[in-house]
Design a protein around this nucleic acid. Structure first.
Lengths: 128, 128
DNA sequence: CTTGACCCTCCAGTGACTGGAATCCTTATC
DNA sequence: GATAAGGATTCCAGTCACTGGAGGGTCAAG
């Protein structure tokens, strides 16, 4: 499989796949012409990475998760710890964003949005 | 006012304030010794920026908002447009994160988290 | 033999800072 | 006057996870 095929299969851009090789997440073989050759296991790993990234895991988390995935002697507790920590971070982020949204929502609703200069949004930002 | 004073007043790190000068958001005067000299209007602008950033506005949005703030002939509609667009982006982001959270939450709850290797989180990431 | 679709590497840029090195200025104390 | 602490300066590099682009090699079809 060339990089284009595996890109289509996994939905990851070829650039991203090359980058993942660069940082050691996958190690595809090479053809005599220098092209990367991906086996099914490589494609599988990349799909795994794509899904982990889609869940918001950092690259380093992905590296850890991949290592755990390939370790038959892993403890599921280790996987759960990574996921739980990540879950907490997501929850924090959601709370932050919701606070922003609530404030913004109120400000936007208070603003007439016409051609006059008077604006409660700016007033709030500039509050003395 | 030196950078340290304005940093304390606004809560922005000195590094950040220098960076904001670098990208042209503020233009403090200079003392004969080369030190930045911040007037009240500079401190005020920086506080404005700090609050806009805290609401998640991008630097470019902040630049726009600051320009609108300083333009007595602004139309509040222009401010509202920036804020509304940003609000939509935040709402999208929240929805994304909530979807991640829901998936992760379920996976985490399904995982025993013991010393056995069997793990539904990895199973989901690796789904064939 | 040419065309177009692939593939390769390498370098630079993104956003919004942040850390660190090396140096200079000010203020207080001895 | 020396010294030390604390604060100021500049400049360079790094963060994260890619992404874009230049410049060039390879392959299959017509």
């Amino acid at each position: 499989m060339n990089i284009g095929d595996v890109s289509e299969r996994t939905g990851l851009p070829a650039k991203t796949i090359r980058y993942y090789e660069d940082i050691g997440l996958v190690r595809p073989a090479r053809d005599t012409n220098g092209y990367r050759v991906f086996r099914d296991t490589d494609a599988h790993k990349l799909a795994f990475l794509g899904r982990a990234r889609a869940l918001g895991f950092s690259i380093e988390d992905c590296r850890t998760l991949l290592a755990l995935y390939e370790d038959d002697d892993r403890a599921s507790a280790d996987v759960k710890a990574v996921a739980t920590e990540h879950l907490h971070q997501i929850e924090d982020k959601i709370a932050q964003l919701q606070a922003m949204r609530d404030t913004l929502n109120e400000l936007v609703h208070c603003c007439a949005g016409d051609n006059r200069p008077d604006c409660p949004i700016l007033k709030d930002l500039a509050r003395h």
